[in-house]
Nucleic acid binder design. Structure first.
Lengths: 129, 129
DNA sequence: CTTTGTACTTACTTTTATACAAGTACTTAC
DNA sequence: GTAAGTACTTGTATAAAAGTAAGTACAAAG
């Protein structure tokens, strides 16, 4: 699952940042291109692995699984598998994951208003056109 | 400022994620080990470059400047310089940056409660010890 | 008896992010 | 005249993150 080197300065600095700043802690858990998107898809209910794969066609299986495993290890999502063939595995948000969604929503709201205000600025510029 | 390759799959995916997900947009702006910490230090008022450097001793000058420049380019902070020698440069949060701080605070709150609930679980485990 | 589908895993390459180290221009203090 | 302080810049190395491609086990469908 992408090996990391325990003894690098970058890891030390991560620990430093983690101590200084809970935001870094939160971003560790939702950092990665696909994690917010996965979380979004799960926010509307539990999904099978193959459903997620089809819902996000641009992601490779490796990345999808890797992020799902990380989210599970961080207790943001819950994996349930039925011991049948073919396998039947579903993923859903945990209580902690639902809690994070509120913070994520706040970020989304900021992003939308930021994009909007940029748009206005562009419009203001060409008022005489 | 760390060259990126316009034509890579990873850049295409970033664009895809940006379209799908405003959260990715927000995380682009606060991603990077030091950005949340810089923002935190500026949240208590404007600071000189050298003050920031002293406040965050673990960061290298290259990273500090790079992040400051990116934050400035994203209009989250404002740079003001007096044309004197030695130079006198201060950084402060912009209106947009202050708006983001609310979302960042929500993440911090989640992180703190997440850490707390982990602590409780660990305590519950050793109730008979 | 080959193909399809499920949910993964593994090995390898490319791209991006960060760290390390040194240099710049200018001036005041010593 | 050299050392220190300001706010940077540049080059290179290393680590981490993401992508590419292929393989696994099992069963049902054709």
């Amino acid at each position: 699952m992408t090996a990391i080197k325990e003894s690098s300065t970058i890891q030390e600095n991560k620990r430093y940042a983690l101590d200084q700043c809970p935001v870094t802690y939160a971003m560790e858990k939702i950092g990665g291109y696909w994690k917010p998107i996965i979380l979004f898809h799960l926010s509307s209910g539990s999904k099978r692995y193959s459903e997620l794969k089809r819902a996000i066609p641009a992601v490779t299986e490796k990345m999808l699984i890797q992020h799902l495993k990380q989210l599970e290890a961080d207790h943001l999502i819950v994996r349930k598998s039925k011991p049948v063939v073919p396998p039947f595995v579903t993923y859903s948000l945990s209580a902690s994951g639902r809690g994070l969604m509120e913070a994520i929503d706040a970020m989304a709201l900021w992003a939308i208003s930021d994009l909007k205000s940029k748009g206005h600025k562009r419009q203001t510029k060409r008022k005489a056109a």
